[in-house]
Nucleic acid binder design. Structure first.
Lengths: 201, 201
DNA sequence: TTACTATACGAACGGTCGTGCTATCTTGTC
DNA sequence: GACAAGATAGCACGACCGTTCGTATAGTAA
């Protein structure tokens, strides 16, 4: 659909846009995607509320683009590095190693952006929730796919349900994230690493 | 400290109080403990904003008492039934079985009250966050204790780190909850049940 | 029944929310 | 260097936020 014309953008505008969306992704992991206010966000990056708002048609649009930005960050730091590993099970190991690193390095102050969003938006309705739910689905689908590849390659036992294995791996990541953020205690990430590596042995 | 006098309460006031706190606990699993507004809460139970507010000295106080109410519910539905099981490992099994039931039965519309609160308050500060973090700690401590008891009774392998086992059990519960709420799909709870029962075999 | 007070209400406070409109800069193109 | 368009700021709006106040009502103890 080329119905709505793309309007051209200036370089300084694009820079501001990126600054806004990076800050929004960070603040959303602390105050929530909904709890984050445009005024707070504007103050945080030294812009006026209206100047910031002009980049988006609505708060919902800002939220959707914030999700896209967070996904780009996750892709660069976690998904891409995992994709180049040699074997399926090594891709899985690298994926979760990078994932836990990205949490521990406080790429987002409140831990994994998507873990936060999933918990916050669980019972909401609308495009923002649908987008988060969709991304979670495709994350799980990707894990399951890697598990099946590892089984086909003989790296993991073939008699296990790939969906079950994916669920358990994801559980460790989720709990590691929540515990680490809540208690500021890396022990939770260590537990997660141990559980994941044992499951992929 | 008996400095502040307990003021006496009327029966109808206590009834309202309970109604308010039950509704608050439910709504908090949808909108968050912070996102929940007093006006919305008042509308929801057919009270005036000021009439409701008079029961508490501040929103923070309302939040703290809401947490206590949610804990009572969790205790009745999950902790108490587990306490009467015969052996340590049966207490663990019952604990998580009841926990997953309490999620599936939508006791709170947004899943486990405490899972929601932990995710929401991870990076906040103040008494509300401290209370949630403390309760999470004592939950984990209780699980670890049961694991050690089960090990001492020979029901679980004695060479495993009890903290690690507790982490993994809790991971399944947490992920089961988030997935079930986000996708309205009981398959996540089934995965959690399977993982927990296998871990406790 | 009377006296006391917990309970509940409506109205209003200052503040912040998301969202528009308008004017003034700033940038890129010819 | 002129000009169109994008970027940003200022201002204002209606709605809602947590909170306070004064007041009317209703449960309870004497």
């Amino acid at each position: 659909m080329a119905a709505t014309e793309e309007r051209r953008r200036r370089a300084d505008g694009e820079r501001s846009r990126q600054k806004i969306l990076r800050a929004a992704a960070s603040l959303a992991t602390v105050d929530g995607l909904d709890g984050l206010s445009i005024g707070t966000l504007a103050d945080h990056i030294g812009m006026s509320k209206s100047g910031l708002y002009a980049h988006f048609r609505s708060k919902e649009q800002l939220q959707l683009e914030t999700i896209d930005t967070a996904l780009e960050i996750l892709t660069t730091l976690v998904l891409d590095p995992a994709a180049v590993a040699a074997t399926p099970v090594e891709r899985l190991r690298t994926l979760y190693d990078r994932f836990l690193d990205y949490i521990e390095e406080r790429v987002f102050p409140g831990g994994c952006f998507f873990a936060s969003a999933e918990s916050e938006l669980g019972m909401r309705e609308g495009r923002v929730k649908d987008r988060i739910a969709g991304l979670q689905r495709s994350w799980v689908a990707r894990i399951e796919e890697l598990v099946r590849e590892a089984q086909a390659a003989g790296e993991l036992p073939a008699d296990e349900d790939s969906a079950q294995v994916a669920f358990e791996l994801d559980s460790y990541g989720m709990m590691g994230n929540v515990g680490f953020v809540l208690h500021d205690d890396p022990a939770y990430l260590a537990h997660a690493r141990a559980a994941i590596h044992r499951r992929l042995r």
